[in-house]
Design a binder for these strands. Structure first.
Length: 569
RNA sequence: GCGCCUGUAGCUCAGCUGGAUAGAGCAACGGACUUCUAAUCCGUAGGUCGCAGGUUCGAAUCCUGCCAGGCGCGCCA
């Protein structure tokens, strides 16, 4: 509908400009006014146009109105305020949305995936396989998963990937931590060193390892050549199993878990470095000491530096040590280039805010190597502060007092975790209160929305009990829906596809959550003011279809967030 | 010191590719269950949109400077 109106207006505007011999293109954009006296849609084109044409805005608006050919659904349009064009739709045609929802069901709001759908690689979570995920990872996971669902609904071909950092120093630390736990299990007295992973989860892993291998056998083998690979592989496998399991508890799955190791083993990282040398994109140099931050034992060291400054970065970035040992950055580039080679020209990465400093350098490198501009599109998700009853939950990785994502999901439930993480823009830090998340009030909006859905179901059950049989949707007289509450629900449902579209285009999945809270509010308000089932048969049928449609849209929206839509609460 | 993010009601947040009287919820106060679920609803009250300039017919929204908080700043990821 919005699109139709915009086209009609745009046509009139173009014509007007043509007549006046003005080249400048003015783009029509419609908004939904907050005040309903301002109509169903409003356009402000006359204002910017007034400047071009050197005429008062209201006069320009008049000329536009004279020239425009409205679609049938338009009741009337008038000029208001400083020069807004307010458009009113024939209400009956708006209310027909309830039939559209009935026809389309789960598909309402979605667009069909076409053959030539744009391929998008969506990388998220990518937590290091060195321990359990924390709530911060959870936020990224939920945001990424929901965005994936939304993009899919809006016709993109989405490929979900998890990048496993299973190479590098941290993996060595993980393995040595596990080895010590194994030794401890065997009764040998060793202490974890500073920096090794103290979490108890490794004790359990050590136990399992010893069920497969006798300690004596492990101890007899050559430590570096034979035992170490066993320990390393076992540790990574167990950590990833735990992570997948925890993600599954949130209803999150990936198409592909991409191993960093494979990039090294296949020689892609080494080849990348050679290529960069050949292209003169890297050079042996020394970086100045970082400013403002004390670096203990700073020593100027020669490294292979990537010329990212040529692509918009502040300083060149180290890619490998002098001896050629690659840094994680080299693997990271190889990974994104690999995505490109697999045909992904759109890459969306969801990272924690603490990785914000790496956006420019990765984009610079990707641009240098593939020519892609602004890829990957990185969404930085801000931190989560975990509180309980308003008190900060103290966490220390070192002390092992660490609240894991899994513990939080088990305590408050996946639906509450998911919805709460989606109610804020990713740019704002999020206070997640464990007590509030369990409470059943508007402070915990997930129940508010779910309750609205359950309430719809209750009405439909009641109708069935009373022997009221719903007639075919197309036969319903939707023009009976004339109260403010009904109109407001109709308008909200009409805007659902627009909300989804905006959420997809701007990568702002939280919009769906905010929308659902509005729709639920509309439903609750309607419920208290009007009865669905009454003696007026025609009205009953119209309202039954209305609430059925609301229930459907609530359900559709909740599915975008991976949250369930219960029929009873 | 530099970069990114944030600053809107007592609290948590929407509104931010400029538009009409800045919105919700919680908390406060007052009401609504013989009715399709009160996990709900209705009403009252609550604001120098961090501060100061600028651009514009019009600024919470864009630009600049400042203030405050978070994150980050080579050989970890």
């Amino acid at each position: 509908m919005k699109q139709l109106l915009e086209n009609a207006l745009q046509h009139a505007v173009d014509q007007l400009l043509k007549e006046s011999g003005i080249e400048a293109g003015v783009h029509v954009r419609l908004t939904r006014p907050k005040q309903k006296e301002h109509g169903d849609y409003a356009a402000n084109v006359a204002m910017p146009l007034a400047g071009c044409l050197d005429q008062p805005p209201r006069e320009v608006a008049g000329r536009i109105l004279a020239a425009v050919k409205w679609p049938d659904a338009v009741e009337d349009a008038d000029i208001a305020g400083p020069g807004f064009i307010n458009i009113r739709l024939k209400h009956a045609s708006e209310a027909e949305v309830i039939k559209m929802v009935a026809r389309q069901g789960d598909a309402y709001g979605r667009v069909e995936v076409s053959e030539d759908a744009e391929k998008v690689n969506l990388e998220f979570v990518s937590a290091n396989p060195t321990g359990p995920m924390h709530v911060g990872h959870g936020r990224g996971a939920v945001v990424g998963d929901s965005l994936g669902r939304i993009l899919t609904a809006r016709g993109y071909s989405v490929h979900r990937e998890y990048y496993i950092n299973d190479a590098g120093a941290q993996i060595g630390v993980l393995a040595s931590s596990l080895w010590k736990r194994v030794q401890q299990q065997a009764g040998i007295s060793v202490e974890l060193s500073d920096g090794e992973y103290p979490g108890e989860y490794l004790i359990e892993v050590a136990r399992q390892l010893l069920e497969q291998y006798a300690f004596e056998d492990l101890n007899r083998m050559d430590h570096d050549r034979d035992v170490w690979p066993i320990i390393v592989d076992y540790a990574i496998e167990k950590m990833m199993a735990m992570i997948r399991n925890d993600l599954a508890a949130l209803g999150i799955e990936f198409d592909h878990y991409f191993s960093e190791q494979t990039l090294h083993r296949s020689g892609k990282v080494a080849a990348l470095i050679e290529q960069l040398k050949a292209d003169d994109l890297i050079y042996l140099g020394t970086l100045p000491p970082p400013k403002g931050k004390e670096v203990k034992n700073y020593k100027p060291v020669e490294q292979w530096l990537f010329r990212t400054t040529g692509f918009g970065d502040d300083v060149d970035r180290p890619l490998a040590k002098k001896d050629g040992t690659p840094t994680y950055f080299a693997a990271d580039i190889a990974y994104h280039v690999d995505k490109f080679e697999r045909g992904f020209k759109r890459q969306i990465d969801i990272w924690g805010a603490d990785h914000g400093g790496y956006v420019t350098r990765v984009q610079s490198a990707v641009k240098a190597l593939t020519g892609l501009d602004g890829q990957p599109e990185v969404l930085l998700v801000q931190m989560v502060n975990l509180t309980r009853g308003g008190e900060q939950v103290k966490m220390s990785k070192r002390a092992g007092t660490f609240v894991t994502l899994r513990e939080v999901v088990d305590e408050v439930g996946a639906d509450a975790v998911r919805f709460n993480f989606m109610t804020r823009r990713i740019e704002s830090q999020l206070d997640f209160d464990l007590e509030a998340a369990k409470q059943k009030s508007e402070e915990n909006p997930v129940y508010y929305v779910q309750y609205a859905h359950a309430r719809v179901c209750a009405i439909l059950r009641k109708a069935e009990e009373e022997g009221v049989e719903a007639i075919e949707a197309e036969l319903v007289n939707s023009s009976r829906l004339i109260t403010d509450e009904e109109k407001s629900l109709v308008a909200l449902m009409l805007s659902y596809p627009e909300v989804l579209d905006k959420a997809a285009n701007r990568h702002e999945a939280y919009r769906v959550a905010i929308y659902l809270m509005d729709l639920a509010r509309g439903l609750h308000g309607f419920y208290h003011k009007h009865r669905v089932i009454s003696d007026d048969e025609e009205l009953t049928q119209a309202r039954l279809l209305l609430v059925t449609a609301v229930g459907q849209v609530l359900c559709n929206g909740l599915s975008m967030l991976g949250v369930s839509a219960p029929e009873r609460m």
